[in-house]
Amino acid sequence: MNFSEIQIIGEDETFKGLKSKYVWLFGGIFVFLCFLAMHYYSTYISFLFPISKGIPYSLISYIVVLSIGPFITLITSFDIVSSEIETGSVRYIISKVHRSSFILGKFFFLFLVFISVSTGIALISLIYQYSEGNAFQLKNIVLFWIFSSLYLGCFISIFLFISTLSVNNKISFTMSMIFLGILVFFFLQGQDNYLKYLTPFFYGVKNMEFMKDFPAGAGYLTVFESLFSMFLYMLVFLSMSLLAIKRRDL
């Protein structure tokens, strides 16, 4: 693993991503949907939350991230490796750098993009809160930023793994959609089914409780437990991506 190689690949992806209209389009859609949800909260979705503690703008945004985030991540991540394999450009890169640097560079670029999107949404929540004259909920906004970044990071690592296994974009997209469907199915299996623990949805929804009511005292440990679980989830799929690219004939 070479950090400068990872940095160069990540930088190059960022450079390409900034020039890509799709990155701006889907990032913009994401932010816009969060804005819409916050704006029309009082009119259409206020029945979902009690307003005793003020309008939970960060929670509203978090629900949008929970529901739309996986799809946006899929669209931006599915071809991150498979497109390079399909066109053959991966040979020019892998003949110069470690395979692990290639995967990690791609991952950190995607993670950076979605952290930026989460940051954007967090800032909009902050501004919205302030402009509506509501109480300042910095803690919730920070929690939103961390939870949504890790939640989306889990999906990035999943789709990166699938993209690494695929020989072309079509297969990568299909497999990613199928896998996402399987995760949704697992999550919907109910309380007693252990399959839900294999899905990022479970951890994402669990984090909503912390945003509604942050635990005091020893309850902090449950928050760290949740953060650690999501981080571990990301790490598992990232490790699988590294293993997959190591054994791959290019």
């Binding site: 160069i8 390409k16 450009s89 020019y92 890169i93 750098v97």
Partner: peptide
Amino acid sequence: KQILGLVPQDSGFYDERTALSHMVYYGRL
């Protein structure tokens, strides 16, 4: 990899990038 130069059979360049941009990227790698 630092002392080897590879020219694969199929050209796998990015169509939307310039020749110089490719070279600078690969040089940094």
